[in-house]
């Protein structure tokens, strides 16, 4: 029974990992940019929510979440249109990579200087610690909400990319940014929208992380590698892949920790390493 509980909790943790990976996967799939600042945007949204909550303690958590997501959406739009788009004009993929790492270091250090490096949490009353029992297994409400939200968001994103005209524009821009211009599409603006969505997705991940556990300015960079693993395992360019990759890593981490308590992320890394050696293009075949 204890093992089943571990697996279930692993799946719930995997929901968070999938959420962290999906933003990175979206940006990489559309723009071919590895965004090193994604983790900091996650933490930034959490700090934003903490500040808003401190200023207006009576606000409903959903309104605070909404404000933080809206804020992140705007930040992502500005980030892409003012900064990243300019560096994407060079043919060298290292330029946007270093640029985003630079932004990540700036954001992280400023957050450390301004807010300090202490552990913080987003206290949502009883919701943060609530749990329900199903078949004698204790399941936290917050982790359950995380997994449900991440599945819902994956479905929503999939639907938007497949069925809406905006989704078609995004896919067309990802394929041929030179040709879409002939149809009146401005690639830079599409990229800005995609980055805004991606940062908003990271914000959701950050809010859930803050609400279910605690965070520091370093929480983003600590999860950057696992986010990369999620994306690569899922297959770069595939949109269901990150969720599957995230679930696999979440289960591996908790089962590994139960078996070998001071292993940290060792078994996640081993799983990743073995998987990419067997299938160098990811679990789900890439369709870039």
């Amino acid at each position: 029974m204890a093992w089943i509980e571990t697996v279930v909790n692993g799946l719930l943790l995997g929901g968070l990992y999938g959420l962290i990976g999906i933003g990175l996967a979206l940006v990489f799939g559309v723009m071919r940019v590895v965004d090193g600042a994604q983790g900091e945007f996650m933490v930034m949204a959490a700090f934003f929510a903490v500040i808003v909550l401190a200023a207006a303690p009576d606000l409903h958590p959903l309104i605070i979440f909404g404000l933080a997501i809206l804020f992140s959406f705007c930040v992502g739009y500005v980030y892409q249109s003012w900064i990243v788009n300019r560096s994407m004009q060079s043919s060298d993929p290292l330029a946007p990579l270093l640029l985003t790492f630079g932004v990540s270091i700036i954001l992280r250090s400023v957050m450390v200087e301004v807010f300090g490096a202490d552990l913080r949490g987003l206290q949502l009353g009883s919701l943060s610690r609530a749990s329900i029992a199903i078949f004698n297994i204790n399941i936290g409400v917050m982790p359950l909400l995380t997994l449900a939200t991440s599945i819902a968001l994956f479905l929503l994103l999939q639907w938007m990319l497949k069925r809406t005209s905006f989704g078609r524009i995004i896919r067309a821009t990802a394929d041929r940014r030179d040709i879409v211009r002939l149809f009146g599409v401005k690639p830079d603006r599409v990229y800005a929208c995609v980055m805004a969505m991606s940062v908003a997705l990271s914000a959701i991940a950050g809010l859930f992380l803050a609400a279910r556990a605690s965070f520091t300015p370093f929480s983003g960079v600590e999860r950057l590698l696992i986010a990369f693993e999620v994306v690569v395992l899922g297959g770069i360019g595939s949109f269901w892949g990150p969720l599957i990759g995230g679930l696999a890593l979440g289960v591996t981490q908790l089962v590994g920790l139960k078996w070998d308590p001071n292993a940290g992320l060792l078994y996640c890394h081993l799983l990743f390493f073995i998987m990419i050696l067997i299938r160098p293009s990811g679990l789900v075949a890439s369709r870039s």
């Binding site: 560096s87 060079s90 060298d92 630079g102 270091i105 700036i106 200087e113």
Partner: peptide, 23 residues
């Protein structure tokens, strides 16, 4: 200044260089 501001300066130099002289 503290080491944190040094990192901010380093990051700014990286961002500035990549914007104005990507090579």
């Amino acid at each position: 200044l503290s080491g944190g501001w040094y990192l901010v300066a380093l990051g700014s130099v990286a961002v500035g260089t990549m914007l104005w002289s990507p090579r």
